[in-house]
Design a protein around this nucleic acid. Structure first.
Lengths: 95, 95
DNA sequence: AAATTTGGTTTATAACATAAACTTGTTTAA
DNA sequence: TTAAACAAGTTTATGTTATAAACCAAATTT
């Protein structure tokens, strides 16, 4: 039988964000936007969802006078990502 | 940058179906239903989509007096699956 | 000081996944 | 022999998602 895939992670943009945050530990909104190619609106919504699930934490600070949104992955998020990858692999390699 | 994921394959049920067909070469509707745990309605819809995309072929025959729907993966489908796996891997392993 | 850019958020819409209801025909039980 | 139950799906309706378009506030540039 196929394990269910965490619907929060089984989304192209959210998965890309998580993938990015795993390697960078910390990233600013514009950087994530650029790396994923997402529109700002879409990214904003998806970051909210990841944040609401506790998969990432979003810190709103300032860089000089400009607002600056910093994202980090949480231990919960890391664990969820690892579980997702594990589950997904059963779909990818035929038995 | 992250490659786009074929939206036809980036779906839990359709991916499970493709995964199944890759290993079995041929499968009947009730078997796929059982293996994936899908409802008949959902499976019917998703098979239609895979079929419309040319990823699988659906043959409607009879088994004695009962209708019997047989599914097979096509070369196009196999190729799409392989591409999908390749693209997905860039999301899974952090750079 | 008007126009543009930066850094986003909110909202509206289109696509999608899913379950529920339905159909057609076949066994099985009364 | 006919009524009930079952098999094998399909169609339709609904709730969720993803996404883009529109919007906003503040800062910077012309």
């Amino acid at each position: 039988m196929f394990p269910t895939l965490d619907p929060l992670l089984h989304s192209e943009l959210r998965l890309a964000v998580m993938s990015l945050l795993i390697s960078t530990e910390e990233a600013e909104f514009p950087y994530i936007k650029e790396q994923t190619g997402a529109t700002a609106g879409n990214l904003s919504v998806q970051l909210d969802k990841l944040s609401a699930a506790g998969y990432i934490e979003v810190e709103k600070t300032f860089k000089g006078k400009k607002p600056c949104t910093i994202c980090r992955i949480t231990p919960t998020g890391l664990h969820a990502f690892e579980q997702y990858v594990k589950a997904l692999k059963t779909y990818l390699k035929p038995r």
